[in-house]
């Protein structure tokens, strides 16, 4: 319930912000910030898809019975968690051309962020898969269900419920981390605020607007995850 209230408050704040932007002198920097916000949302949305795909794949691979598959997943996870996100972004944008792969800035940003957070997510997925009781796997075996079908239909749906809350927190961290994409020349809301501040010198207004927008976004994610969790667990509690 508090999550719902906070989300509503966040939305109201967001709308108020737009109103203020339109009718006061904040409008001199607001359009640029909103253009930046659009870039941030785009990077965040695409990175989220990549993060989830990478996390599910690597997390499931980490529980594979075949050692080489586990090792590959382990190498991916260790490399992307151990080196810094910024290093990875630079690598995708500045070093990949050396290998003959020139990526647009958006692609480099999404790849870097998606794969970096996918590595953190993989550990969440692995933990969730392993916390599904052993008896579930045994029951599936006893029913002659094939391993892949067992993973997709029996284990994963139960693991999903366990992984939603930590994945929600990771998504919030991911959205916050998109603020570094100016490293690959994208003008997101963070970089737009720096630019606007250098033009207009209105530090407090510009950065408060930016911070509040990020805050609304992270509260929105928290709220959506709450809804998702409630949906996922609706038949796990007794009742009708």
């Amino acid at each position: 319930m508090t999550g719902r209230l906070m989300a509503i408050a966040a939305l109201i704040a967001f709308l108020l912000g737009i109103v203020v932007a339109t009718f006061s002198e904040t409008r001199i920097f607001m359009p640029a910030l909103l253009r930046g916000a659009a870039v941030t949302l785009q990077v965040a949305g695409l990175s989220f898809l990549l993060m989830v795909a990478a996390a599910l794949t690597a997390g499931a691979a980490k529980t594979s019975p075949f050692p080489p598959v586990r090792w590959m997943a382990g190498a991916y996870i260790e490399i992307f968690r151990g080196t810094s996100l910024l290093v990875q972004l630079f690598w995708f944008y500045f070093v990949m051309p050396e290998f003959g792969v020139t990526l647009p800035a958006m692609a480099a940003g999404v790849l870097g962020i998606g794969l970096n957070f996918g590595a953190y997510g993989a550990e969440i997925v692995r933990g969730a898969i392993q916390s599904v009781p052993k008896g579930q796997r045994e029951a599936a075996t006893a029913l002659n269900i094939k391993p892949l079908h067992r993973l997709v239909r029996i284990v994963m749906p139960q693991a999903m419920i366990i992984m939603v809350p930590p994945m929600g927190n990771l998504t919030i961290e991911m959205v916050k981390a998109t603020s570094v994409v100016s490293a690959v020349t994208l003008v997101d809301i963070t970089y737009a605020s720096v630019q606007q501040n250098q033009i207009h010198y209105r530090t407090v207004e510009i950065f408060m607007v930016t911070l509040v927008l990020y805050y609304c976004l992270s509260q929105l994610i928290r709220f959506s995850m709450g809804v998702l969790e409630a949906r996922a667990t609706r038949h796990l509690c007794t009742g009708h």
Binding site: Q136, E138, A139, L143, R153
Partner: peptide, 24 residues
């Protein structure tokens, strides 16, 4: 039949009984 039932908690009683027949 297991000591702890090991029913699939995310499926209804009916779905528990048709999942494997359909798939396997």
């Amino acid at each position: 039949v297991f000591q702890n039932f090991n029913l699939f908690p995310h499926m209804s009683a009916l779905d528990n009984c048709i999942e494997a027949p359909i798939h396997s």
